[in-house]
Amino acid sequence: MNANANANANINANAKATAAPPLLTVRGLKVVVGGRHILHGVDLDVAALGTTALLGRNGAGKTTTVRGILGLVPRTGSVRLDGEETVHLATHALVRRGVGYAPEDRGVFAALSVAENLRLAERPGAGEPAYGLVYELFPELRTRARQAAGTLSGGQQQMVAIARTLLNGNRLIIADEPTKGLAPKVVAEVARVLERAAETVPVLLVEQNLAVVRRLARYCAVIADGRTAHRGPAAGLLDDPDAARRLLGVGHAHPHTQPHARPPAHPGTVQDQEAEA
């Protein structure tokens, strides 16, 4: 099929461009929840440098892919972190190998204070937690340390979620739609922080906001109906309106706010037009 040929060409391009072997290699990931097959075999590489975006329409299986990688849902297949097979590991054991996770619903403990939320992410034996970095990026978290996390705004809760991934000098950060439901200004701030984090730690980013993807991601993988439908450089996909429409369904409205929204139908700004439509 045309789609397959296209995907293969992109995988080759990807392989050529990536000198270092991928940090995370997912092969044939299958997830069955309550007798329902949700993932039928997802293949995914997270580059050893920078941000890799995981894209797909609503309900495609992005979140399930991430939860499958972490072992939060029963899964089969292969998940290699830095060459080591982790598919048999319990979630906490994988995470202790150096994975930070900011889940889709932020996973903030509402009844606990901000400081307690952060303290939970400390890993005994993993070295001094990087509170300096966290408070430099999110000064607000220091002033609100004693506030119950459930009373924070959505953006502040997302900062807590991201801060928890930055505390431990992780080898990989997984963020599932960190900009979802946030005001444009906060989206830009979250994007800035992730961009900075990705300078030192590879990031696997699930994101529907294509302007954020364009700004952060070097590579991408697209999930459709529980399978990998496309892998390749992010820019390649975003610059190809046909592929973007076919794989991501942009053109259907989606409600995310854009940091750099422009009027539609501007020749030469296809990506923004797509993202906004």
Binding site: T91, V95, R96, L120, N168
Partner: peptide, 8 residues
């Protein structure tokens, strides 16, 4: 989420 933060 507790396990996802690395605690058994």
């Amino acid at each position: 989420m507790v396990t996802a933060l690395g605690t058994d």
